[in-house]
């Protein structure tokens, strides 16, 4: 049984890496259609990655060894973090290695090295990106944690598998989960660098956050960094989809269950991606010093979730 479970976990980790570019391609496609463009094919991100992987990498004279190590660390850490989030089946052994707080910690480790890599070459853009990234993440962290707390207060657990099991077992309309969902979506938007906090498509110098840190990368290093960003988007998507809409996720490791789980998560992610694309089309990017207000809203939502849990959902 455990061998099967570990096998499924490995399979799922590979699935994460394989599906991540697809989600990005889908979002870009939907966005393009909404803007009356035909857009690149959905599989374009795969081609980009392949092209970058075979190209020669260039590194600035001023770069230190950390610059070359960072892409590997960022990618691997993000991948490990992703593999702890149930995608197609619930009770994976990897979910026990790390609960939600460890997940947040792993993502923070990836961000730490990303920011350091941005500062390494010593260009002004890199420093700017690192500084802004740390601001946004610092403000997102309490909101994220508050949302996690809201879930954990009901489910009595921070283990993702337990939380999803709890949702499946005792589903009810809960105001606290509604608010936590809202807060978590805002946090996810900020953390994955989407509009309105950051624009993943921009290379307009003064508005970049994430892209500014990657500016000096090329070749396979850039491919790893891009892939890590795509993984992170998929991770947040799976987190939101499977915690708040857990239906269909595989409860056991039989092929039928896994197949249904895969189909379900596929549909959920398509819907979430389309919603994100619509949101990005409707909204405009905010200037940097509006981002605190955005993340305060996330914190407020999560806090209200907590309060409504305490006030409305617990008697006595």
């Amino acid at each position: 049984m455990t061998a099967v479970a570990w096998g499924a976990a490995l399979l799922q980790a590979l699935l994460y890496a394989a599906l991540a570019p697809l989600l990005v391609g889908w979002i870009r496609k939907v966005k393009a259609r909404l803007q009356n463009r035909r857009g690149a094919p959905v599989l374009q991100p795969y081609r980009d990655l392949r092209k970058l992987l075979v190209k020669e990498a260039r590194v600035a004279h001023t770069a230190s060894p950390l610059f070359r190590a960072a892409p590997y660390i960022v990618f691997v850490t993000t991948w490990l973090a992703a593999s702890t989030v149930p995608l197609v089946a619930v009770s994976l052994p990897t979910a026990a290695i790390a609960d939600i707080i460890v997940l947040v910690g792993l993502l923070a480790l990836a961000r730490f090295f990303l920011a350091l890599a941005g500062m390494d070459v010593g260009t002004a853009f890199g420093g700017m990106g690192a500084s802004r990234e740390m601001l946004v993440s610092a403000l997102a962290e309490p909101a994220m944690l508050m949302a996690v707390f809201t879930l954990a207060m009901s489910a009595h657990s921070t283990n993702l598998a337990s939380v999803i099991d709890y949702q499946l077992g005792a589903f009810a309309l809960r105001p606290s989960f509604l608010f936590a969902l809202g807060g978590l979506i805002l946090v996810a938007i900020a953390e994955t660098g989407r509009i309105p906090v950051d624009n993943p498509a921009t290379h307009l110098e003064l508005t970049m956050i994430h892209e500014a840190m990657l500016l000096e990368y090329s070749g396979r290093h850039l491919a790893l960094m891009e892939w890590a960003a795509q993984l992170k988007l998929l991770l947040y998507g799976a987190l939101i989809a499977n915690i708040f809409f857990p239906w269909g996720i595989g409860q056991s490791f039989t092929p039928a269950d896994l197949g249904i789980g895969l189909a379900a998560v596929f549909l959920k992610l398509l819907a979430l991606g389309a919603a994100l694309a619509i949101g990005e089309t409707v909204l405009a990017k905010m200037r940097l010093f509006r981002a605190p207000a955005f993340l305060n809203l996330a914190l407020l939502l999560a806090l209200l979730g907590l309060l409504s849990h305490v006030i409305l959902e617990v008697g006595a």
Binding site: L173, L312, V314
Partner: peptide
């Protein structure tokens, strides 16, 4: 009182 024990209409009232 846990929300799961309440009838659906009352759950809706809570959410609203």
């Amino acid at each position: 009182m846990s929300p799961t024990l309440l009838p659906l209409l009352q759950q809706i009232v809570l959410v609203l």
